Simulated assay, not measured.
Amino acid sequence: MLRGSPQQMAEELLRRRDEIGVSSLSVDGAFAEQPAPVVELLAGR
């Protein structure tokens, strides 16, 4: 589970990618729009 601001969540996802190789996440369809700001921050990274 990710918590915090979109910037904090993006940083955590990048950390996880670098440390453990996780580069994707799953989102329940009912909440599909909520991670949009995080996805925008990660675009092209």
Rank of each mutant, 00 (worst) to 15 (best):
M1H: 12
M1P: 09
R3L: 10
R3C: 05
R3Q: 08
R3H: 07
G4M: 06
S5Q: 06
S5C: 02
P6D: 04
P6G: 05
P6K: 06
Q7K: 13
Q8A: 15
Q8G: 06
Q8K: 09
M9H: 02
M9R: 13
M9K: 12
M9G: 00
M9D: 00
A10M: 03
A10K: 02
A10P: 02
A10D: 00
E11P: 00
E11M: 05
E12F: 01
E12A: 15
E12D: 07
E12P: 00
L13I: 09
L13C: 07
L13Y: 02
L14D: 10
L14W: 01
L14A: 13
R16S: 10
R16Q: 14
R17V: 04
D18F: 02
D18N: 09
D18I: 01
D18Q: 11
D18P: 02
E19H: 13
E19S: 15
I20L: 04
I20N: 07
I20W: 01
G21F: 03
G21A: 11
G21Y: 05
V22H: 10
V22A: 15
S23W: 08
S23Q: 10
S23E: 13
S23V: 06
S24D: 11
S24Q: 06
S24N: 11
L25T: 12
L25H: 09
L25Q: 05
L25F: 15
S26P: 00
S26L: 15
S26H: 04
S26Q: 02
S26F: 14
V27L: 05
V27W: 03
V27E: 06
V27R: 05
D28H: 11
D28A: 11
D28E: 11
D28M: 11
D28P: 03
D28S: 11
G29M: 12
G29Y: 10
A30G: 13
A30R: 15
A30P: 00
A30E: 14
F31Y: 12
F31M: 07
F31R: 08
F31I: 03
A32V: 15
A32T: 09
A32Y: 09
A32W: 11
A32G: 10
E33R: 14
E33L: 07
E33A: 12
E33M: 03
E33F: 08
E33N: 07
Q34R: 13
Q34V: 14
P35K: 03
P35L: 04
P35C: 01
P35M: 08
P35F: 08
A36Q: 14
P37Y: 10
P37M: 08
P37Q: 07
V38H: 01
V39H: 01
V39P: 00
V39D: 01
E40S: 09
L41V: 01
L41A: 04
L42D: 03
L42P: 02
L42T: 01
A43Q: 12
G44L: 07
R45Y: 07
R45H: 11
R45D: 10
